[in-house]
């Protein structure tokens, strides 16, 4: 097998990695907003759930979460008579989203809490409800603050997808392992793997920068 023939299977794997990254980043962002705002809620139950979620998923290993969802959950389900077997893709996306969402929640919470209290007072003086203030005043101002950290998290997430190869999901790393087992050409295949991840990270970073520029366009408007 000539090294140029590695490209086919690797690209197939890369496509799976891209999909995993895209889905888990989007779901992770939704979870991050939910838990981050939840942690600031005046409702004790919502706050408790948000804090519990954030601490559990930040405090345990992603690999263990993944194994738990894929191997342990079905057994736990069997014990109580429910079918909780997840396809590898679902388990992978779920573990990655929950994990990145927990980290992202702290970013969301921090950025919202950092919006100046003057803005809340202006909102109150204009008779916005607290919810309207959050939605129309606080969150839009907090989002640009979140973007650099979200960029980091998205790249982190891309690299973490490699772990799903361990539950036999055919991502980039999984394909590379297959080729290596077959050819024993470790140097070439791992080098190609590095370069591919790096290339994808570059593209992802550029995308996040573009998004950042878009959500902060009001800051950079020139007279």
């Amino acid at each position: 097998m000539h090294w140029t023939e590695y490209f086919g299977p690797l690209m197939e794997g890369a496509w799976v990695t891209i999909q995993l990254t895209a889905y888990s980043t989007v779901f992770g962002a939704i979870l991050a907003f939910g838990a981050g705002i939840g942690k600031l809620s005046s409702n004790l139950a919502i706050r408790a759930i948000s804090i519990a979620y954030i601490e559990v998923f930040r405090g345990t290993s992603l690999l263990v979460q993944l194994f738990w969802l894929y191997f342990a959950l079905p057994l736990a389900g069997m014990a109580i008579g429910i079918d909780l077997r997840l396809p590898p893709v679902v388990a992978g996306v779920l573990a990655l989203s929950l994990n990145i969402g927990a980290y992202g929640a702290e970013v969301v919470r921090g950025a919202i809490a950092a919006v100046h209290k003057d803005q809340h007072e202006a909102g109150r003086a204009l008779n916005f409800t607290p919810r309207q203030t959050l939605r129309t005043i606080t969150i839009p101002q907090a989002i640009p603050e979140m973007m650099p950290s979200f960029g980091n998290l998205a790249v982190q997430n891309l690299k973490d997808t490699a772990l799903v190869s361990l539950i036999s999901l055919g991502d980039l790393t999984f394909r590379a392992e297959q080729i290596r087992n077959f050819t024993q050409d470790s140097t070439t295949i791992y080098s190609m793997l590095l370069v591919t991840y790096f290339g994808m990270a570059l593209v992802l970073t550029a995308m996040m920068r573009t998004l950042e520029a878009y959500v902060s366009r009001w800051r950079t408007a020139r007279s």
Binding site: D118, Q119, E121, A122, I137, P140, Q141, W218
Partner: peptide, 10 residues
Amino acid sequence: FQQFNLFPHM
């Protein structure tokens, strides 16, 4: 307000 407190993103 003394510091105007306009909404900077609007």
